[in-house]
Design a protein around this nucleic acid. Structure first.
Lengths: 225, 225
DNA sequence: GCATTTATTTGCGTATGCATTAATACATCC
DNA sequence: GGATGTATTAATGCATACGCAAATAAATGC
C-alpha cells in the first residue's frame, strides 16, 4: 500500500481518536472522572483541542460533561444495553429489508459474505476478538447496503456505546455459532431479494442477542460496564 | 409563574440556542455559509463559544464544518426526508408498542390526549403553526412514554433536521385531519394496552406522512429545503 | 493571452491567561 | 455539637493572540 509520507492530523482529531481508543480499551475506565487539564496532559496538548474532542464524544454518548467534577466516562447499565439493542433491532431490520429490496448481486454482497466467512474461521479458531471484529464489519456493511446514511450513523454510535461492555461479556458466553447461522440466513434472504424474510430474520437475530446479553448481565449481577 | 431574577446562561449555551433558533427560523438559510467570526459577531461573543456550539450542532446534523469555507447550514433533500421519516417510522413504532405494553392509565396519557385535542382545535381554527407545535408535543410525548431515552433523543434530532423543511411544506398541503385520526387511534391502542395495534397503526401513520411529504416535494420539484 | 509561480491575505487551529464561580475547608455563632 | 456564614482553592468558560496553511491575487514567463 502506498502511503502519504505523513498525514498532519490536527490535535483535535488526535484527541478524538485517542480518547475514543482509551475509552474502548478501558484505559479510561467506565465511571471514572477526568479533568480537562488531566486529559490535556495525557495527550500532550492544551485544553482547547481536548475540550472540542470531549464535546463531540459527549454528543456520541460516550462521556458526560459535569462542570467542576470533570468529564465522566459513561458506564453502561443493563437498561442501557436493552435500550441500545432495541434501537439496533429496529434500524438494522429496516436496513436488511432495504438491502434485499435493492437487489444486490453476489459481487455487491462480497463484503457481507467475507465477514460471515471470517466469523466462521474465528469461531473455529476460538478467536473471539477476531469474531467480534468481523461481526462489526457484518453489521456495518449491512446498514451500508441498507442505503440510509442516518441509520448507518446511529447504528455506529450505538455499537460504540456497547463496545466496552460487549468485550467483557464476550468471554462469558458460549461460542456464537448460532449467531453466524442467523447471519447466513440474512445474507441468503438479501441475495434472493426476499425483503420480508430478511427483515424478520434479522429482527429475530438482534432480539435474540439482546436477551442473551441482558440475561447474562442479570445472572452475573453486572450493573455497570 | 415565578421566575428567577436572571439566569446567567453561559455563552456556549446561548450560542447553541440562538444558532438553533436562527436555523429553524430561516435566519441562517439552508445552504448558506458563515465564518466563525461572522457568527461570533452576530452573537456578540468571541469565536470560542461559537466553535463549541457549532461542534455540537454538527453532531446533531444541522450544519457542516468546512474549514476555510465556513460552516454550512445543511439543506434537506427529498432523499434526506425519506431517510429521516424511515428512522422515525421504525423508532416511534417501537415507542408506541412499548407505551402500550406499559399499561399507562388515563392520567399518564393526559399530555398525549391534550396534544391531540390541541391539534383538533388548531385544525378547526386553521392554525397550522399551532397544529405543528401540538404535533411535535404528541410525538415527543409518545417517545417519552415509550421509555427508551435513546429513541427519544434520536427522534428529537431527526425532527429538528426536518423542522425547516416541514414548515414550508406545511402550507402546501390540505389540512391534516386524517393525521389526527391516526393519533387518536394510536392513543386508543395504547390506552387499551394493545401493543401490536399501537405499533401497526403508528407505523402506518408515519409511512403515510412520508409518502405525502416525498410526493409533495417531487411534485413541486423542491430539491433542497 | 494563458499558464505557472510567487506574494498576500485571510480564516482556522491551538495555546495561553484571566475572570468567574462552584466546591471545599475553615471559622464563628447559637 | 451542629449549623451557618466566610475564605480559599481550583476548574472551567471565555477572550485573545499567534502561527500556519489554504485560498486568492498578483506577477512573471512562455
Amino acid at each position: 500500500m502506498s502511503k502519504a509520507p505523513d498525514k498532519p492530523v490536527s490535535s483535535s482529531q488526535r484527541a478524538l481518536h485517542e480518547l475514543r481508543e482509551k475509552i474502548f480499551a478501558g484505559d479510561l475506565p467506565a465511571g471514572s472522572d477526568h479533568l480537562e487539564s488531566e486529559l490535556a496532559g495525557l495527550l500532550n496538548m492544551s485544553r482547547t483541542p481536548v475540550r472540542e474532542a470531549v464535546l463531540t464524544l459527549e454528543g456520541q454518548g460516550l462521556l458526560e460533561l459535569r462542570p467542576r467534577k470533570g468529564v465522566r466516562i459513561l458506564p453502561v447499565s443493563p437498561e442501557d444495553m436493552a435500550e441500545i439493542y432495541d434501537v439496533l433491532t429496529e434500524l438494522e431490520s429496516l436496513a436488511a429489508q432495504r438491502a434485499a429490496e435493492a437487489g444486490y448481486d453476489a459481487d455487491a454482497l462480497r463484503l457481507l459474505t467475507e465477514a460471515i466467512d471470517d466469523m466462521d474461521v474465528a469461531i473455529a479458531e476460538q478467536d473471539l476478538e477476531a469474531w467480534a471484529a468481523a461481526d462489526d464489519r457484518f453489521h456495518a456493511e449491512l446498514v451500508h447496503l441498507g442505503g440510509n446514511s442516518r441509520i448507518a450513523g446511529i447504528v455506529g454510535m450505538m455499537i460504540d456505546q456497547v463496545r466496552r461492555a460487549r468485550k467483557t461479556t464476550l468471554f462469558m458466553r458460549p461460542l456464537p455459532t448460532q449467531s453466524n447461522e442467523d447471519h447466513r440466513q440474512v445474507l441468503q434472504a438479501i441475495a434472493s431479494g426476499d425483503a420480508t424474510l430478511a427483515r424478520a430474520v434479522h429482527r429475530r437475530h438482534r432480539q435474540h442477542a439482546k436477551s442473551i446479553i441482558v440475561s447474562l448481565l442479570a445472572k452475573h449481577r453486572l450493573r455497570y460496564l
